[in-house]
Amino acid sequence: MAEQVREEFVEIAGARVSVMRAGRGAPLLFLHGAGGRSWTPLHDRLAERFDVMAPEHPGFGRSALPEWMLSIADLALFYLDFMEALDLRDVHLAGHSLGGWLAGEIAIRNTSRLASVSLLAPAGIAAPEEPFGDIFLWSREQGARAQFFDQTLAEKRLAAPADLDLVLQNKTATARLAWSPRLCNPQLHYWLHRIDKPTLLLWGRQDRVIPYACEPYWKKGLAASVSRVIEECGHGLHNEKPDAASQHMIAFIEGSKE
C-alpha cells in the first residue's frame, strides 16, 4: 500500500525548497530530471523500504532561478549543503536523467554522507556515436514519445492538459544547467574514480533521450558499479517500468550492504 506523501520545506542558500517525503528506513534522496519533480510509481515502491525524499531543484516548478545557479556544479554544491543541513547520513542517492547527472556531480565531490549511488538513465556523459536527443528543440509530442517504449503511454500523457507555466519554468531551469554543452559535462569522466561508494547504472534499453550507448562510458570510469538494463523501456523508466526499476534498485542497495 502506498505511503502517505507529505510536503516539507527546507531553506538553503537563499532558496526555499519543497521536499516530498514518504516512507521509513534508510534515507533515499531522489533527484528529479529535466521534466520537473513529481511523485512517480517508482517513488511509491521505494517508499515501502526507505525514507524517500524528493526535493524540487531550485529554479524548477514555481520557483525563480537563483542567481548563484549557473551550472550543474553549483547545484551539486547546493545538495551537499542540503544533506548537511538535514544532517542526512548513509544516504542512498538516486537520480533520473538530469538528476542522475547531478547525482554523479555530487558524488565526485564528496561521498562522505553517501551509502550508495543509483544513476537512472543519467545525462552527463555523452556517447559520441549516439548523441542525446535535443529535448529543447523537440515539440511536446516528440518529447512525450521519447519518454516511452510503449507509445500508448505517450499518447495518454499527451491527452492530459499541460501546465504551460510549469513546463516553461522547468525547461528554463534545465537550459540554465544544461544548454551547452548539451546535458553533459565533458570533464566528468575524468573524476568518476572519486565515487568510492557502490554505484548502480540503470537504463531502459530503448532510451531515445539519453541512449543506453552512454552506459560503457560511465562504467569505464566508475570504481564499483553494477549495471542493469530494462527491456522494452524508454527514457522514463520510473513511469514506464516502476516495478522492474524498484526491484533493481532495492536488490542493488540490499546487495551493496555486504
Binding site: L137, L164, D165, K171, T172
Partner: peptide, 22 residues
C-alpha cells in the same frame, strides 16, 4: 520556424513566452 526554435527556454520570461505561445 517552429515555436521551440523561436523561443528557446529562458530567452524570454515565462510570462512573455507563454503570452507569445498562446
Amino acid at each position: 520556424l517552429p515555436v521551440e526554435m523561436r523561443m528557446p527556454p529562458g530567452y524570454s520570461s515565462v510570462a512573455s513566452a507563454k503570452y507569445l505561445i498562446e
